[in-house]
Amino acid sequence: MSAEQWKPWAARIAVVVAVVVVYVALSRLWTFAHTDNPALVEDDTIVRVASSACAQMRDAAAAAAVPPTAPIPQRVGAINAENDAVTQLVATMNGLGQARLQADQPASQWLEDWGRLVTARDAYARALAADRPKPLVLPTIDGKGLVDRLNNVGLNCRVPLVMLAP
């Protein structure tokens, strides 16, 4: 074969290679665009329900808050009422079903973290009620503080400050 006969074949091969490269690039881009971001809650239903449930939780926590100088029984009652507000938030979110929550990776972890906050605050309230007050200690999970994990999942649902300084 002469050089003139190779030119059409080389052009065809170049076109086929280019088409394959473009196809692979677009398929990778499509896959990336439709992959769940493990750091953010992205399901529209979860986001909508969480926004509403969080607003209710914030309102209930604000209504239950008492000053740190309040008598111990009143402070313990406020902590328990605020914890009940968080428990209601978690129950509302669990009403969406485990399948939906598991499908958007950080959603179930986020709910577990709210449970961890309630557990830490409950331990603080028990120590306070037993007249052995200890500082509120929040756990660190995978090197991240609990409040940071709760506040940074892409939801409009920050931990109310009254819950961090009982």
Rank of each mutant, 00 (worst) to 15 (best):
74 Q>A: 06
14 A>H: 00
50 A>H: 15
134 K>V: 09
49 V>Q: 02
90 V>N: 04
105 Q>R: 14
90 V>Y: 02
109 Q>Y: 10
44 D>S: 10
91 A>R: 15
125 A>H: 10
102 Q>H: 10
73 P>N: 08
127 A>V: 09
40 L>M: 09
78 A>S: 15
34 H>D: 08
14 A>W: 04
10 A>C: 03
1 M>A: 09
104 D>K: 06
112 E>I: 10
27 S>E: 04
82 E>T: 12
7 K>T: 11
163 M>F: 06
32 F>E: 00
146 L>R: 10
107 A>S: 15
143 G>A: 01
129 A>N: 12
55 A>D: 11
99 A>R: 15
132 R>C: 02
4 E>R: 13
9 W>P: 02
53 A>Y: 12
110 W>C: 00
70 A>T: 10
133 P>S: 08
101 L>Y: 12
112 E>K: 02
62 A>M: 05
8 P>A: 04
53 A>W: 11
49 V>P: 05
23 Y>N: 02
162 V>H: 00
24 V>L: 00
35 T>G: 00
101 L>A: 08
66 V>D: 04
137 V>T: 14
147 V>H: 07
93 M>D: 08
97 G>K: 10
89 L>R: 08
70 A>C: 02
150 L>Y: 14
100 R>K: 11
4 E>S: 00
106 P>I: 09
54 C>I: 09
101 L>Q: 01
55 A>H: 10
23 Y>R: 04
45 T>G: 04
17 V>S: 03
159 V>G: 06
88 Q>V: 08
151 N>H: 09
14 A>I: 03
151 N>C: 01
39 A>P: 08
21 V>T: 15
34 H>V: 02
132 R>I: 03
166 P>I: 04
115 G>A: 06
140 T>Y: 05
131 D>N: 13
104 D>N: 01
121 R>T: 06
125 A>P: 07
101 L>N: 07
166 P>V: 09
21 V>W: 04
146 L>N: 10
82 E>G: 11
118 V>R: 01
39 A>L: 10
78 A>P: 02
31 T>K: 04
86 V>H: 04
1 M>K: 03
12 R>F: 03
95 G>N: 14
44 D>V: 09
142 D>Y: 07
72 I>S: 05
36 D>N: 11
98 Q>T: 15
16 V>H: 03
106 P>E: 04
80 N>S: 07
86 V>T: 14
83 N>D: 14
26 L>R: 10
120 A>I: 13
78 A>H: 08
81 A>C: 01
102 Q>N: 14
118 V>I: 14
1 M>T: 12
36 D>W: 00
18 A>T: 14
159 V>T: 12
123 A>S: 13
133 P>K: 14
45 T>W: 00
70 A>S: 14
20 V>D: 07
43 D>G: 02
121 R>A: 08
53 A>D: 07
126 R>M: 04
31 T>F: 07
35 T>Q: 01
70 A>G: 06
77 G>C: 03
152 N>W: 11
79 I>K: 00
128 L>V: 12
128 L>M: 12
74 Q>L: 10
22 V>Y: 02
148 D>R: 13
67 P>L: 08
91 A>Y: 13
42 E>W: 02
153 V>T: 01
10 A>Y: 11
148 D>K: 03
38 P>Q: 07
141 I>S: 04
46 I>K: 00
65 A>H: 15
134 K>W: 06
78 A>I: 09
163 M>Q: 13
